[in-house]
Amino acid sequence: MVILLLLALPAFSLMLPKVIEFKPRGGGGGDEGPEQVLSNFAFVTSVKIGSEQQEFWLTISFLFRDVWVEGSKCKKCKVVSQTYSPGTSKTSKNLTTTNNYHDENKMLTLKGNVFEDDIVLENYKFRSKISVAHKFVDPLNLAEDGILGLGVDESSIVYEMYENNYITEPIYSIYIDEINGSYLYLDSINFTDLGLQVESTVVITLKDEIVGNFSYNGTVYDSAPIEFSSISSYIIGPYSLLQNLYTDLIMEYGCYYFEEFIVCDCEGSYPDLEFIIGEDVLVITQEFYLMKVETACFLFTNLGGTSWILGEPLLKGYFTSVDLKEKTITFNKVSYIPDTTPTTFETIEGWAVVFFTVAGSFLIYILAAGIYQIIKRKLDAQDEVPLIDNSAQDIKVLRY
Rank of each mutant, 00 (worst) to 15 (best):
T306A: 11
L4G: 09
Y172W: 00
F191A: 11
F62G: 13
N244R: 10
P139H: 03
E21W: 08
D153P: 06
F300R: 10
T340G: 02
S229R: 07
E70F: 03
T330H: 03
D383V: 12
I130Q: 04
L184T: 10
F64D: 07
S215Q: 15
E32F: 07
I147R: 00
N244H: 13
S46K: 12
D323S: 05
E163W: 07
L398K: 15
K333G: 02
E55I: 15
D193G: 14
I262P: 06
E169M: 07
P139R: 00
L95V: 07
D272R: 10
V47D: 01
L315P: 05
L398E: 07
E346L: 06
I119D: 02
S361L: 15
S229H: 13
T45H: 05
N141D: 10
L398D: 10
E70W: 00
L282K: 02
L110Q: 06
D117F: 01
Q82K: 13
T88N: 09
E346Y: 06
M107R: 15
Y234N: 08
M291A: 10
I235S: 04
F41N: 05
P386M: 03
S128H: 15
G237T: 07
S335F: 09
V152K: 14
T97V: 13
L206Y: 06
V281F: 02
G254S: 04
N123W: 05
G360H: 05
S391K: 08
D380L: 14
S223P: 03
F261N: 01
P338I: 06
E70R: 04
S215V: 04
F356K: 02
Y124G: 01
V397H: 09
I20C: 02
E260C: 03
L315M: 14
E144T: 08
A42E: 11
V263P: 00
Y234R: 05
Q373M: 11
M15L: 12
S81A: 15
L142V: 05
S321R: 06
V354M: 14
Y270L: 04
C297D: 12
F43K: 09
G304V: 04
A224I: 01
